[in-house]
Design a protein around this nucleic acid. Structure first.
Lengths: 144, 144
DNA sequence: GAATATTCGGATATTTTAGTCTTAATATAA
DNA sequence: TTATATTAAGACTAAAATATCCGAATATTC
């Protein structure tokens, strides 16, 4: 099997999107996140730590502590999150894994894939998570 | 990190494409394949065995033995290979991993991804490997 | 029939990813 | 200041993906 994004990255996307729905400056605990998103507690903790180190989130210890976005939601795209967790090698590598695949020396689907890859990029950058949050009121996010 | 296709699948695509360039009924040894494609010998052996069990390749032991396509090249698409190795869950699962993501209850990029996913599918099925082989004469495949 | 070149199959090893546990640090509130 | 609720950090375990090894089976050639 193989996903577009690693499981870790999927969890990161889900968690950051969840935080984008929250009022600015409100801290959200790992406990709440894992309950709502059904992600293993300690695993999510690691991921959030990582995103915090990279500046995408901020954190606060103690009661009333938790995580929040590290910058305005309008400045964060899905691409930032993917970049932070999985990296973006997929943007410049051959979909069939040919090391020599280039424009001069293309594989059988080089051009097709170039278009699709650009489409994926556009999907990830064309909306910031503030815009996404606006049109979002999903079961997984509704009050329990 | 995370690729579209697993490494195993990439190797399978490369190997089958290589075999498609060969005259029908000519057997190709693992040795030749690994030399040309720079894939670990024993790992490729496993993958080819697997493709043989699934009917995509045929094999013959002994000197002059090796592997060949298990059916006419015009009947094989990249999709068949991906299906055999990685499976095609990516065709029906949410790109952000939301278990509840459906048409009625879409994630933020549900529609965008649906279009791209269809594009990937089209890329994989629109040409058979005979057609691909015709327009292919890549360095990695040229005579050593 | 013997020597040889190959695939087959199973066991094992290594690396990466996923997930868990435990202790420390820290912030809050009583 | 003490109890408590949280994140931080690192060690650990589990599972999956990647890769290797070896002996058996088999086909070819001499």
């Amino acid at each position: 099997m193989s996903l577009i994004f690693s499981r870790q990255c999927e969890y990161a996307l889900q968690a950051v999107l969840y935080l984008a729905l929250k009022p600015h400056n409100e801290m959200t605990s790992i406990k709440e996140l894992t309950r709502r998103l059904d992600i293993p507690y300690h695993f999510l903790a690691k991921i959030l730590q990582d995103l915090t180190r990279k500046g995408l989130l901020s954190s606060l210890k103690g009661p009333t502590g938790g995580f929040a976005l590290g910058m305005p939601a309008k400045d964060i795209t899905l691409f930032h999150i993917v970049e932070a967790i999985d990296g973006v090698d997929f943007m410049h590598s051959c979909v069939m894994g040919f090391p020599e695949c280039t424009g001069k020396n293309p594989c059988a689907v080089h051009e097709k894939w170039a278009g699709l890859r650009d489409g994926i990029y556009t999907m990830l950058v064309s909306k910031n998570i503030a815009e996404m949050a606006k049109n979002m009121r999903k079961p997984e996010y509704q009050s329990a």
